[in-house]
């Protein structure tokens, strides 16, 4: 299982628009991807409601995990995405 830790760069946190972009990219991977706070239960990264209900704020750390072929690349892509200020774009 691949795993990454990244802090949220979006200035207003992982809400509707940044969450939608993140969920779309996670869904396109076709893998089981999860997102959660370190040490807490993770949620399905392809569920926009789950991701939004996480309520991850700007600067907070989240842990991403993925299973399956190409998991490392998929996580690298998602980490890159979360490291950008999606709201400013």
């Amino acid at each position: 299982m691949a795993q990454r830790t990244v802090s949220i760069a979006s200035s207003v946190g992982l809400h509707a628009r940044p969450a939608a972009i993140f969920v779309e990219q996670a869904s396109q991977s076709g893998l089981d991807v999860e997102i959660g706070r370190p040490g807490e239960d993770a949620v399905d990264a392809t569920s926009i409601l789950g991701v939004m209900a996480l309520g991850a704020k700007h600067g907070e750390e989240v842990v991403l995990t993925a299973e399956g072929e190409g998991a490392e690349e998929v996580l690298d892509g998602l980490v890159e995405l979360l490291s950008r200020d999606l709201d400013a774009e």
Binding site: R17, A19, A20, E24, T46, S47, I48, L49
Partner: peptide
Amino acid sequence: QQILKATALIAKDKGL
């Protein structure tokens, strides 16, 4: 468009 797309994602949500 962005609002409608994000709302469509909610309708497709597996958790829901």
